[in-house]
Simulated assay, not measured.
Amino acid sequence: MKYFIGLNNEFLTEVGEIYQFTRRFFREFFKPKQEFDEFLHQCFWVGYKTLPLVGLTAFIMGLVLTIQSRPTLVEFGAQSMLPAMVSVSLVREISPVITALICAGKIGSGMGAELGSMRVTEQIDAMEVSGTNPFKYLIVTRVVATTVMLPLLSNLSNAIAIYGGYLGVNIRGHVSWHLYWTQVFDALSYGDLIPSLIKTFFFGFAIGIIGCYKGYNSKKGTEGVGRSATSAVVVASLLVFVIDLIAVQITDLLGFT
Results as ranks from 00 to 15, higher is better:
37 D>V: 12
113 A>G: 06
229 A>W: 01
199 K>F: 06
97 V>G: 00
178 H>S: 14
49 K>Q: 15
136 K>I: 03
210 I>H: 02
14 E>K: 13
97 V>Y: 00
88 V>C: 02
203 F>E: 00
40 L>M: 14
131 G>T: 10
135 F>T: 06
105 G>V: 12
137 Y>V: 00
168 G>R: 06
2 K>W: 08
62 G>V: 07
50 T>I: 10
34 Q>D: 08
4 F>C: 11
3 Y>M: 13
124 I>M: 12
67 I>D: 04
20 Q>L: 15
123 Q>C: 11
110 G>N: 06
251 T>K: 12
61 M>Q: 10
220 K>W: 11
93 E>Y: 07
60 I>Y: 12
153 L>D: 09
220 K>M: 13
240 V>E: 02
149 M>S: 11
21 F>E: 07
144 V>P: 02
18 I>A: 09
186 D>T: 13
237 S>R: 04
122 E>D: 15
188 L>R: 10
165 G>E: 05
75 E>T: 14
162 I>Q: 07
184 V>D: 05
96 P>V: 08
76 F>A: 13
1 M>S: 15
22 T>F: 10
15 V>K: 11
198 I>A: 09
57 T>Y: 10
126 A>R: 14
104 A>Y: 03
84 A>C: 05
57 T>M: 14
151 P>L: 12
184 V>C: 12
207 I>T: 02
196 S>P: 06
203 F>N: 01
